[in-house]
Write a protein that binds this DNA or RNA. Structure first.
Lengths: 133, 133
DNA sequence: GTTCGTGCAAACGGTTTGCAACAAT
DNA sequence: ATTGTTGCAAACCGTTTGCACGAAC
C-alpha cells in the first residue's frame, strides 16, 4: 500500500499527504468519481484537504497517465483509475458508470472510414444494470 | 421552410418567433452547437432572444425528440439535429464533432454482455480530421 | 532563499431558477 | 381569468485562477 509513494515518485509527482490521500482513493475505486467525490473521500484521510488541491492533483495524475478523465456524463468530468482501453456502460437510473472490458466488444468498419484519423475510440452504452447482473 | 411552424405544432410546441429562430438554426446545422452558439446565431433572426429562452426551447425540443443532446465534449452539452442513431468523431484539434453513419460501424459482442440492458449505444472516436477527407 | 505545494477566496463559464411583464386562449 | 412565454437578473455548480503562507530542497 505504501508503494503509492513509489508510484507517485516514479511518475514524477512529489508525494505529499494531500496527494497521497487523493491518489489512494482515486486509484483504488472503480466508481468513476467526480472531483468532488474524490475530495469528500480523501478528506477522511486528510481533513484539511482543499478543493483546489484535489483539482491540481487530479490534473497532475491525469497528465502522468495514472488516471484518465472521461467526459461521458452530463456536466461533470469523472476520473477513471483504469488506464487501459475499455468501454463504458452508464446506468441511466443510478448514474453509475461501469467498465466494459476492451475485448468484450469488437468495433468493425473503422478502417473503411475515410477522412478520419482515429487516435482512440470507445463504445458508450446507456441503459439499465440488470438485477443479479 | 415555413413547415417549421407545422413541425413545432405537430410536436406540441407552440411556435413563437423566438422558438422559430432557435429551431430554424438548430435543426438546419450539422455543427453540433452549444446552447450559446445557438443563441448567437438565432439572435441574428430574433435580436431580443434571451439565453433563458434558448435553454427553455432546446430543452423542449429535446423532450419532443426534435433534437438530441449529447454529452461527449468536456464541460458542455451540444445539440444534434440528427435524431437517428449514429456515431461521433471528435477532432481533438478543432473540437469539431462529426457524424458517422450508423451502418459505417458494427459493434459486435453486446449480446454476450451479462448484466447490462443496453438501451442505446454509440461509438465515440477521437483523433484528427484528415486533410481532404 | 528559491522552488514547489497548499488552501482560501474570488473569478469564471455553462446552466437553472424566480419573477414580473406580457401574449394568447 | 387563466395559462403559457419571455427576458432579466440572480443563483447555482463544476472548475480555474491569484495569491499569500508554509514546507522542502
Amino acid at each position: 500500500m505504501e508503494d503509492l509513494i513509489g508510484l507517485l515518485r516514479g511518475a514524477g509527482v512529489q508525494p505529499t499527504p494531500q496527494r497521497l490521500a487523493v491518489a489512494r482513493y482515486v486509484l483504488a475505486t472503480t466508481s468513476h468519481p467526480t472531483a468532488d467525490e474524490v475530495l469528500e473521500h480523501a478528506r477522511r484521510e486528510c481533513p484539511t484537504l482543499s478543493r483546489a488541491t484535489v483539482y491540481n492533483t487530479l490534473t497532475r495524475l491525469t497528465e502522468k497517465r495514472l488516471v484518465k478523465s472521461q467526459s461521458i456524463k452530463e456536466g461533470v468530468v469523472v476520473f477513471d483509475a483504469r488506464v487501459e482501453k475499455h468501454h463504458h456502460f452508464i446506468d441511466e437510473e443510478t448514474g453509475e458508470i461501469h467498465d466494459v472490458p476492451w475485448d468484450a466488444l469488437v468495433v468493425s468498419g473503422k478502417e473503411k472510414l475515410k477522412g478520419f484519423q482515429i487516435k482512440e475510440y470507445q463504445v458508450v452504452m446507456r441503459g439499465r444494470r440488470k438485477a443479479g447482473g
